[in-house]
């Protein structure tokens, strides 16, 4: 039975179809909610709420995409609502500090790194071709100033000057981070 038929039968109050839906989606939904909130109990709660609400609102449910994405969307929504209520209950503080904050912290750090590297790429792209070439040889290919001078048949002083221009062009903080990561 495909999802459209399944939904249609549920809308006709067919409890067997509802059981089929449950058996098909329990595991992925429960596992997803559990990965979000790091709690089996909360995950179970969320899946229960989602299925009860599907049954109760079966008359009015219209599904735009697939039944699967509708269910996952419902779990996403219930999970963030649950997170909101966890955040406002003092007895959950420990658990949030230990299990949930580090998750969000990690995401924030990764996003900031991504942002930074994207910004740096943009600024490198804006350098003059010559400066960019010297800069990349130095930072990406890790060539020494002497090696770059030899390779491009220019003086070491010119290489130094060009690198100086590059680092000045890339904003100070970004350059520092780049040097930090590159080394």
């Amino acid at each position: 039975m495909n999802d459209t038929d399944l939904l249609l039968r549920i809308q006709c109050s067919d409890m067997k179809a509802f059981d089929l839906l449950y058996n098909q989606y329990w595991h992925p939904l429960f596992s997803f909610a559990n990965k979000l909130l790091r709690s089996y109990d909360d995950a179970q709660d969320i899946v229960q709420t989602v299925f009860v609400s599907i049954w109760e609102r079966r008359d009015t449910i219209t599904i735009q995409q697939s039944l699967e994405s509708y269910l996952f969307q419902a779990v996403r929504f219930q999970s963030i609502k649950k997170l909101e209520s966890l955040l406002s209950s003092p007895e959950q503080i420990d658990r949030i500090q230990e299990d949930l904050l580090p998750v969000f912290d990690g995401i924030l750090n990764r996003l900031q790194e991504q942002d930074l590297s994207r910004q740096i790429q943009k600024e490198i792209a804006g350098l003059s071709p010559r400066t960019r070439e010297i800069f990349l040889l130095s930072r990406q290919y890790k060539l020494s100033i002497g090696e770059i001078a030899l390779k491009l048949s220019i003086s070491e002083q010119t290489v130094k000057n060009q690198l100086h221009i590059a680092l000045k062009a890339l904003r100070h903080s970004i350059a520092l981070v780049l040097i930090f990561y590159a080394n």
Partner: peptide, 12 residues
Amino acid sequence: MMQLQRLKNIVS
């Protein structure tokens, strides 16, 4: 480390 209040704001 992200502050609790920051997470609260993000969620709400």
